[in-house]
Write a protein that binds this DNA or RNA. Structure first.
Lengths: 258, 258
DNA sequence: TGAATAGTGTCTTTAAGACAGTATATC
DNA sequence: GATATACTGTCTTAAAGACACTATTCA
C-alpha cells in the first residue's frame, strides 16, 4: 500500500485503479419489516450515492464489490449479485460533483479535469444484509454514510436513483426464483418473520396460508422443537434453513415462485 | 474522425476510447432450425472471440454494442440486451494475445505493455438476428469473421467460451419471460416455423399441441388469411406478430413461459 | 375470558403436461 | 390412395388463489 493511500488522497491513486470503470453496490438492509438501503455522501456535496468505489488492478469486479461491502458494513460473506452495468457519457454529469463545488464544500483544492470526473461505466451489484448488525462506516472521502428507507430517498447524485430502482427490480426477480433470507434472518426464525421478510421485499401482502404451504413444500426450512416467547401471545415455532437445500436452490434456481 | 482511425491503426486511438472497459456482443443468428454465433479472429492468432470492441468517450455502452453489431452484420435495429459484466485480472491473459505473438502472425510491430493488453472489464450483450440476412464483415484488426454453430465452437480466446455460455443461459431465461422471434422470423411465418425457433433456442423439443395452445393464448400472433405453398403437403397458415402486444410483452415481461 | 398473534384445511379455478387422430395438399 | 406435413381436442394432474376458523398464551 503506497503513501498516497495511507495519506487518504484518492486523487493521487490513479495508478492503482482501473480507469473509466467502477463498481457500485446497492446494499439493502432488512430489519423488522423495514427495507433500507445504505447510502453515502461524498464530501458534503448535498447529494447521496449508493456505496461504490474503484476497482484495483489486482482484483476482480466481484472482489471490488465485496471489499466495498466490507468497508461499509464490517461484514464478510454477505450475499451479493451483479445485476447490470450503466454507462453513458451523461450519467456522471452532476452539478454537485464538480471540482468547483467539491473545493467549496470540502475545503480541498480539486483540479477540474481530474480522472474521477471522467466518464465511468458502473458495474452494479446489490448486497443483502440484516441492518441491525451493521455499523455504517464512511470512507475517507465521505461526509456521511447511513441507512435510508428505500421509498424515502434523499436527493441522489448521478443516475443513482435509477440504479436503486433497477437493483430493487432485480432483487424482486431474484426472490421469485431463488431462496432468500439466510443473510437477513437470525439463524432461528419463525414463520411470521420470514413471511414479513417476503412481504417487505416484494412490497405487497402474501396470503399467510398459501405462503406457508409453498415455503414448506420447498423443504428449505426445518421445523425445530423450540418456540420463541414474545409477549402474551401464542409462542411461534422456530425454524432454520436446511443449508444444503438452500444452497442447492441458489445454484439451480426455480425453488420458490411468489 | 482522426487520421489514426482512417489509417486503421487502433494502437494510436487510445485517446478516443475508454480505458479498462470494453463491450462484447454475442451475436446469435437463427436460420432454419440452426442457432449460430458470429465470431471474429483478431489478426491470425488462431483463437476466436465474440464480436466486441472499445467504447468511445462520446457513446453509451448500448450505443457501442449496437455499433459493433452494425459493423459486423450491416443491420440496424436488432434486438440486443445486456446480460453480465466480466472482470478479473486473469481474464485477458491468453498466450495467443501477446505483443510477441501478434507481431509474429500479423507482421506489425506491437509493443508489449500497450493499452490493449491491460485488464479490461467486459460489459457483455447478446444480439439476435436472422443469419441469412447477414454478410459478416470483419474489421480492420480481424483476420476473419464468420458464423459458427453454437455447439461446435473453435478454440476461444480469453474467457469467451464462458461469455457465450452465459449469453445462451440469459437468452433462454429471456425466452421464458418475453416474446421472441420478431427479428428472427420473416414478417409472415407459420406455426411450425415459430415452433422450430423455440425448440432450437431452448435446445429441446416442445409438444406442438401445447406450444400452439399457449402461444395463441398470449394473443401476440395474428392469424392471416393466407397460406404458404411448400411442396406437396398441406399448406400451413401464415401468422404475423401483433406488434403492439409484442412490444407490451417486451416491456412488461411474463408473457410466455416455456 | 378477552385480546393478540400463531397455525392450519378445503374448495375452486386455472394451467401444465401427456397423448393421437383428423385434415389437407400433392404426386 | 399413398405420403408428408398441418392442425387440433380431451383427459389427468398439479398448483395457484381465495377464503376462515381453531389454537395458544397471558394479562
Amino acid at each position: 500500500m503506497g503513501k498516497a493511500e495511507e495519506s487518504g488522497d484518492i486523487f493521487d491513486l490513479k495508478g492503482q485503479f482501473l480507469r473509466n470503470v467502477a463498481v457500485d453496490n446497492v446494499i439493502f438492509g432488512y430489519h423488522e419489516k423495514e427495507l433500507k438501503v445504505l447510502l453515502q455522501q461524498p464530501f458534503s456535496v448535498g447529494k447521496w450515492t449508493v456505496t461504490g468505489g474503484y476497482i484495483k488492478k489486482t482484483e476482480s469486479i466481484e472482489q471490488a464489490a465485496s471489499r466495498i461491502a466490507f468497508d461499509r458494513t464490517g461484514l464478510k460473506g454477505l450475499f451479493f449479485e451483479q445485476f447490470r452495468a450503466f454507462g453513458n457519457p451523461e450519467r456522471v454529469i452532476d452539478e454537485s460533483f464538480t471540482a468547483e463545488h467539491i473545493s467549496d464544500v470540502a475545503g480541498v483544492k480539486v483540479k477540474p479535469g481530474l480522472w474521477v470526473f471522467d466518464y465511468f461505466v458502473s458495474v452494479s451489484f446489490y448486497t443483502l444484509t440484516e441492518f441491525s448488525k451493521v455499523e455504517p462506516t464512511k470512507g475517507p472521502y465521505e461526509a456521511d454514510c447511513r441507512w435510508w428507507q428505500v421509498n424515502e430517498l434523499p436527493p441522489m447524485m448521478f443516475d443513482h436513483k435509477l440504479i436503486i430502482e433497477e437493483a430493487l427490480k432485480a432483487l424482486r426477480i431474484h426472490i421469485a426464483h431463488y431462496p432468500i433470507g439466510y443473510e437477513l434472518l437470525p439463524e432461528k426464525f419463525t414463520l411470521p418473520e420470514i413471511h414479513a421478510l417476503y412481504e417487505t421485499i416484494l412490497g405487497k401482502t402474501l396470503d399467510d396460508r398459501n405462503f406457508t404451504r409453498r415455503l414448506l413444500a420447498t423443504g428449505i426450512i426445518i421445523k425445530l422443537n423450540e418456540t420463541r416467547k414474545i409477549g402474551r401471545h401464542r409462542s411461534p415455532i422456530l425454524y432454520k434453513f436446511d443449508k444444503e437445500k438452500y444452497d442447492a436452490g441458489l445454484r439451480e434456481g426455480d425453488v420458490l415462485v411468489f
